Simulated scan of single mutants.
Amino acid sequence: MMSDISPTELEFRRQGARGALAAGTGYLLWGLSVMFYKQIAQVSPFEILAHRALWSLLLTSAVILIIRHHTHFLGVLRNPRAMRTLCLSGLIIGSNWTVFIWAVNSGHILETSLAYFINPLMSVLVGVVFLKEHITNAQRAAIALAAAGVVYFTIALGVVPWISLYLAVSFAFYGYLKKTLRIDALEGLCVETMVIAPFGVGYLIWQSSHGGSAFVADGWYTDLFLVLSGVMTTVPLLLFTYGAQRIRMTTLGLLQYLVPTTSFSIAVWIYHEPLGMGQLVTFGLIWTGLAIFTFDSWYRERVRARLVASTRP
C-alpha cells in the first residue's frame, strides 16, 4: 500500500517512473527518425549533420533564455571537468549522427537496427567495466550470444558490420558519459552542439561557396526538414538524458529495444531492405541473447521487490 512506502522511497519510484517514460519516448522517436531522414536522402550527410548541430544549438539556447537557466548554463561553462566531458561527448555523438545519417540514406537501416539491438548489451558491459555494476551469468550469456552474432555476420557476409559496431559502441559510451555527469540535460546538449556547430557552420559556408548546398536550392520541403532536424535531435536527446540520470544502466538497456524494433520494422516492411539468411541468423542470435537478458533482469527485479517488501515493518 502507498501508506507503507516512505516519502524517500516514493520519490525515488516517481523519479524512476518519470525517467523510464522520458527515455522510452526518446527511444521511440529515435526509432522513427529513419523515416524522417529518408525525406532528405539527397542531401549530404555532412550537411545534414551541420544543420542538426546549428538548429539544435539555436533551439537549446532559446529554451535556456526563455526558462531563465542562463545562470546554470554559465556555471557549466565555468566547470572544467564538465566542459571536458561535454566536449568529448559532443564529438562522440556528432560522429554517431554522421554514421547514422549516412547509413539510413544509403539503404543500411537494417544495420542501424542491428546496432541498437546490440547496444543494450553494450550498455550493460560499459556499466560493468566503468560503473562496477554487477553482471549475472545470464547477462554474460546474452553478451556472448551478441558477440557470436557479430562473428557470424562477419563470416557469412564476408564483411565486418562496422556500421552496427560503431553506432553501438559510440552510443554506449555517450550514455556512460551522460550518466556520470550530473548536469541538466538542456545545458549539456547546448554545450555539445556548441562543440559541433563551428565545424558545421564552416562546412556550410564552404559548401555554399562551391555551389553545393541543398538549403534553399532544393526547395521549401528540404529546408523544412533540415530546420526540423534540430527539433528531431534536441527532443529525443533531452528525454534520453533526463531518463539516463534517473534510472539504472540495466533499465536503460532494456528500454533501448524500442529503437531497433521500430527501425527494423520500418526497414523490412516499409523500405523493403533485403533480409538474407546471414542477417536472419545474426538477428536470431542477438534476439536470443536479449530474451535471456530481459527475462533475467525482470526476474531479479521481482526478487528484489519482494525482499524490499518483506523487510518493511
Rank of each mutant, 00 (worst) to 15 (best):
G75N: 08
W30F: 12
A50L: 03
A82P: 06
L58G: 00
I92D: 09
I48G: 12
H70I: 10
A20F: 13
L125P: 13
T60S: 14
P45W: 09
N96S: 12
S89I: 04
V43C: 03
I109P: 10
M83D: 07
A115M: 00
G16T: 09
A22D: 05
H69L: 02
L29P: 01
L86G: 04
V124D: 12
S44A: 14
P45F: 09
A82E: 07
G90E: 06
V43R: 09
I101H: 07
S113G: 12
A23R: 05
I66L: 15
M122L: 15
Y27N: 06
V63K: 02
G107T: 08
I93P: 02
M35F: 15
A17P: 07
A23L: 15
I64R: 10
R81H: 04
T60K: 05
A82K: 04
S61I: 13
T71E: 09
W102F: 08
G107F: 06
P120D: 09
F100C: 00
V124C: 14
L110D: 05
A17G: 06
I64G: 12
H70T: 13
R68S: 13
S123M: 14
W30N: 04
N119K: 03
H108V: 02
Y27G: 01
L88H: 11
L21T: 07
Q42Y: 00
Q42S: 15
L29W: 01
A115L: 00
H72N: 05
W97R: 04
T25H: 00
Y37Q: 07
V63Y: 02
T25C: 07
Q42E: 13
L86C: 05
A115H: 00
V99P: 03
R81C: 01
I118A: 13
I92M: 08
A115C: 02
A23C: 07
G19I: 06
L86K: 05
I40M: 15
I109K: 06
T85K: 03
L32G: 15
H108L: 10
H70R: 13
K38C: 02
I93L: 11
V104W: 03
I101R: 09
G31D: 09
F100L: 01
I93C: 02
H108F: 13
A82L: 01
T71M: 04
V43T: 13
S56L: 00
F73A: 11
R18F: 13
G16K: 12
F46N: 07
N105W: 01
A53C: 11
L49T: 03
L88D: 06
T98S: 07
A23T: 10
L28D: 01
V76E: 09
L88C: 12
W102M: 07
A22R: 03
G16I: 04
L74E: 02
I92W: 07
E47Q: 09
N79I: 00
S44F: 01
